[in-house]
Write a protein that binds this DNA or RNA. Structure first.
Length: 418
RNA sequence: GGAGGCGUCGCCUAGUCCGGUCUAUGGCGCCGCACUGCUAAUGCGGUUUGGGUCUCAAGCCCAUCGGGAGUUCAAAUCUCCCCGCCUCCGCCA
């Protein structure tokens, strides 16, 4: 939720943000109107309550002959208060709807426009031309006995896979490498629940426009998380944090319905319903948010570099940001089989937008105020395995093992087809 | 799954039986001031959070006793539902 004070003081800035996102600036005026209406309703109800309270308190001290008329007056006021309170809760609800409809205000420098309007910040590593026709990760993975999508489909349906043998060990190696790097960098490691209550899902904004993406367990009123950003953000909900910054690296399984992506990335394990992920999450003072964002990006770059993968960093355009994000950087690795860049990590600066909704505050000079929250992928395992296999493949079907992963892979320098 | 107990403004706690005196008691901690070579001790004052009003300052007003609904002129207190924690029983990797 955006800061209503900012909205009242500088509505043009919020309108400009909407325009940059390709979103409706009219939502800003609707929110302003809802805010006005609510304040009017609150003032009216407050005043009536004050009056009622006074009369009500005089009931006890009233003399026997006064009492009936005082009681009558109190009853009449009580009914008025009831009506005013109903009007107030209606106005509250209307404000909430209008408030939730306005996404975070984008930061200065974010490229305007849609999905295609990203700006490439840098490229790390070179895309080496393959001297043979590259195979895709599924072919390679099947050859290694590392990926089994047929049995995945038999047991769980399409977009599910088994990781077996070297595939299973690769996952554990990646997770170990990622968690180790994060701990080294001062992140507190966390194994997070993958099932959360509605409030956690709502508070992080995942039941908005993308509610279709989320698995729900209706019998238990619980949701399966699509990322450990959800439990990590909700971790401190409703709390006052005195020791900022706080940094976490959470490991969890992630579940996505992929409702809107029929026919997209259907082959292999690039887009599946269940995968594991190591996610960084930071709570910081809002003044430090942009610096922290770059810090998360550096962690992602260091991790991909350790895997010896060529990648580029893009500054995602305003229209392609999630509603909570004020800025987002993606790292995209080169996928040889498709000759394209594939998103491997994504880091978002949510400023105080998410924290306001979750009630996560810190003590400042002028009392309590929301913190800033930031999240970033350190390693989305399945997709990273896919890219690793493709980039490090050799003509004979063997796969080079980056040095950083070898401690967990029996010190192998290469994986050989079965 | 069954039975019982508990939840008060940072922490602990009084109040709940029997509705109005609760503008929620006291202690600890914290902040300010006084006293004092320094510290400590002592004394005095302050210390929930959110919202409204406003010269966005003081002040004033409203709400807030785990959450919600209800009864009532009036609810921390009575009723119902929900959530969480604890104890015991059952089941279980």
């Amino acid at each position: 939720m955006i800061d209503l004070k900012l909205l009242r003081d500088d509505p043009d800035r919020v309108r400009a943000s909407q325009v940059a996102r390709g979103d409706d600036p009219g939502l800003v005026d609707a929110l302003l109107a809802a805010d006005d209406a609510r304040r009017a309703a609150v003032t009216r109800a407050d005043n009536l309550r004050a009056e009622q309270k006074a009369v009500s308190q005089s009931v006890k001290s009233a003399s026997a002959e006064e009492r009936p008329s005082v009681l009558e007056k109190a009853k009449a006021l009580s009914a008025e208060v009831k009506a005013a309170e109903a009007a107030q809760s209606e106005a509250d609800a209307a404000l909430r709807v209008a408030h939730l409809a306005v996404p975070n205000v984008v930061l200065d420098g974010v490229p305007p426009g849609g999905e295609q309007d990203y700006v490439v910040r840098e490229q790390v590593g070179e895309v080496m031309p393959m001297l043979f026709a590259p195979r895709d990760h599924l072919d390679i993975g099947v050859g290694l006995g590392a990926i089994d999508v047929e049995r995945g489909a038999k047991v769980s349906g399409s977009r599910f896979a088994f990781l077996t043998g070297w595939g299973a060990l690769l996952e554990l190696a990646l997770v170990n490498l990622a968690i180790g790097q994060a701990v080294e960098a001062g992140f507190n490691p966390v194994i997070a629940p993958a099932l959360v209550r509605p409030e956690a899902m709502e508070g992080t904004g995942f039941l908005g426009a993308h509610a279709d993406e989320v698995y729900k367990l209706a019998n238990d009123d619980l949701y399966l998380v699509g990322t450990s950003e959800v439990p990590l953000a909700a971790f401190h909900s409703g709390e006052v944090l005195d020791d900022l910054p706080m940094r976490y690296a959470g490991f969890s399984s992630c579940f996505r319905r992929e409702a809107g992506s029929h026919g997209k990335d259907t082959r292999g394990i690039i887009r599946v319903h269940q995968f594991d992920k190591v996610e960084m999450f930071s709570y910081v003072d809002p003044a430090d948010a942009e610096a922290e964002h770059l810090r998360l990006l550096e962690q992602e770059k260091a991790f991909l570099s350790a895997l010896e993968l060529p990648f580029r960093v893009i500054d995602v355009a305003a229209g392609d940001l999630g509603s909570s994000a004020a800025r987002k950087y993606d790292c995209e690795a080169w996928l040889p089989s498709q000759q394209r860049w594939l998103e491997l990590t994504s880091t978002s600066n949510c400023t105080d937008f998410q924290a306001r909704r979750l009630g996560i505050r810190t003590r400042g000079e002028s009392g309590l105020s929301p913190v800033a929250t930031l999240n970033g992928t350190l390693c989305a395992v399945g997709r990273t395995i896919a890219v690793l296999l493709e980039v490090h493949q050799r003509e004979d079907g063997s796969v080079h093992v980056p040095e950083a992963l070898r401690p967990w892979l029996a010190n192998r320098k290469e994986l050989l087809p079965q």
